[in-house]
Nucleic acid binder design. Structure first.
Lengths: 251, 251
DNA sequence: ATGTTATTGCGTATGAGATACGCCTAAAAG
DNA sequence: CTTTTAGGCGTATCTCATACGCAATAACAT
């Protein structure tokens, strides 16, 4: 089979199809080793600390050794982002779609909470790695019992993925800056706003500020969590309405 | 007034409150000039091309001159991300919330389409700049006629912002990689998936592939646009249901 | 006027990081 | 045991962000 020839570079990388090992010196590393080391560094010191030399050091190798396994740092990042979401939750076969998607979304949220840097990696293409696709499949399976067309299922899942991703990115970026400077949130934030926002130019915002919405002393994490559940709920309500329409409309 | 002393650095920067100009050499630049130049560079050559020296060159100054106006590149990025979304759309006073939010979301989408790099700038804190707050205010105003509490309005808007942001980031990252390598999408993508995905391990995904969902020849932009409208619609349906509940439940 | 002082403009230097190139070594094939 | 092929990695280059310090300049004080 000369099939592999046509497969894009990303795919062969992500699925470990770059085995041409015949003769020559034996490799002392594997792509998986490198990926694991990079993830260790990112977990411990943040994505910014992931440099080729730092990762190499983690493995006890020289910087340039890595380039025998990975064409560029971008490839490494791609590997990292597929390697991290280890596996989607196991949904019981008979869950209703809403419970399924909720578990799925929470699972994704949880995974990313443990490796916050994933949200910072720029997405370089449609999902192609084994883990990403497993997650994708899992969400689609949750919609199996519904009357949606395959295309509509994809749409729903993409929207949800987008929402979760956006939420993650936002909340992670925010908690990073929160960690640096907690006073910038909560009361302090409200006060700074109040100083700068006038009722003429920002009528609606002023009302919100006046209502004290920004002066909560709720721990930040809980607030984010609440936000997430809230918008997830809204989105799923929308999905419910859509499914309803589909079902009664053409069932 | 010694008020300003307490204002965080970001705020004084974004609102142009760093005027201490008394004696000494006259500044030949302004923060606004620098921001504008940086945006020109980003528009023309992408965010990656925005380096301090490139921006300085754009202005005909030396690299280090910029540091008199901006503490770091991060500050410059912050300025850029507030400066770009020029102003929110003018919503008629009597629009219903759904139309208002739809216009708002489309407006935000449009602005970002013209400056795709905005989605790549890491968010470093809650919205504080004049333009960001104007947009925030605009969305809140759209919800003015509803029975939601101020806090709920904020929740709805944050969720929507998250969705739009996530959508943008996704679609922009994707179209970047699409531009580089169009074959990786559409038919080619479907084929690569088909090669690698087996029905045992990816039951739901296989069905989707079999249904030919990934083999459309729809121009990519339209597809993204459609995706966006679809998930926006879902989310707003959710909001509608929520408002409904609030209104009948406690009205 | 003239020196004083606060500020800006910017050259130079440092250190980090990605990555091309090519030499050397080791393993497999003949 | 020689040839072939692939991995390990030192060295070198280029790009950046940014610290530091000196020189130019404009308001102010005398």
């Amino acid at each position: 089979m000369t099939d592999e020839i046509e497969l894009p570079a990303e795919v062969t990388l992500l699925w470990g199809l770059r085995e041409t090992v015949r003769r020559g010196r034996k490799p002392s590393l594997t792509v998986a080793d490198i990926t694991r080391a990079a993830i260790e560094v990112a977990d411990a010191e943040g994505l910014a600390a992931v440099s080729m030399s730092r990762v190499a050091a983690q493995l006890g190798n020289a910087t340039m050794a890595l380039y025998r396994y990975v064409k560029s740092k971008d490839e490494l990042l791609l590997l990292m982002s597929d390697a991290v979401p280890d596996g989607p939750p196991d949904l019981p076969d008979d869950v209703d779609w809403r419970t399924g998607l909720t578990l799925w979304a929470r699972g994704l949220l949880g995974v990313t909470r443990q490796h916050p840097w994933t949200a910072q990696i720029p997405i370089s293409g449609p999902p192609l790695g084994p883990n990403s696709l497993r997650w994708f499949d899992c969400a689609l399976r949750a919609l199996d019992g519904t009357d949606l067309s395959e295309e509509e299922k994809v749409g729903v899942v993409m929207g949800l993925l987008t929402l979760v991703h956006g939420e993650l990115r936002l909340s992670i970026d925010l908690s990073r800056s929160y960690a640096k400077n907690p006073q910038a949130f909560g009361r302090q934030y409200g006060m700074a706003l109040a100083r700068v926002v006038d009722a003429q130019r920002f009528p609606a915002l002023s009302k919100v500020i006046a209502a004290g919405v920004f002066e909560t002393e709720v721990p930040y994490d809980e607030e984010v969590e609440g936000e997430f559940e809230f918008s997830l709920g809204l989105y799923l309500d929308g999905v419910a309405a859509f499914i309803e329409r589909r079902t009664t409309g053409q069932g």
